[in-house]
Amino acid sequence: MSWRDIRRKIRKGMADILEIPGEVALDLPKIILVGNVQVIIENHRGIVEYTDTLVRVLVESGEVAVHGQDLSLRNIMQDEICVEGVIKGVSFN
């Protein structure tokens, strides 16, 4: 177990005790789905791939993929991405 894993474990424990939301303490992505028309991903690290059927977004613990049709990036800001279109699924890789 490396020093980095230990630090992560301690931080998770602290976050659990203090009930601090994960996206604040652990830099986890917060994903909001609005029906099947909009996905808002907060705390992202940039996009990996963008086509009109797939959007892959880099996040702290890997990658989030949004599958769908006619996808468009409604809005991109420093820490927030808003994807619109007909959404079929959201998965973590």
């Binding site: 940039g46 963008y50 086509t51 009109d52 996808l71 468009s72 990036l73 409604r74 809005n75 991109i76 800001m77 420093q78």
Partner: peptide, 11 residues
Amino acid sequence: SRGIHLWDIKR
């Protein structure tokens, strides 16, 4: 990352 705001991106 340079703070240029982009929106309504379409393929």
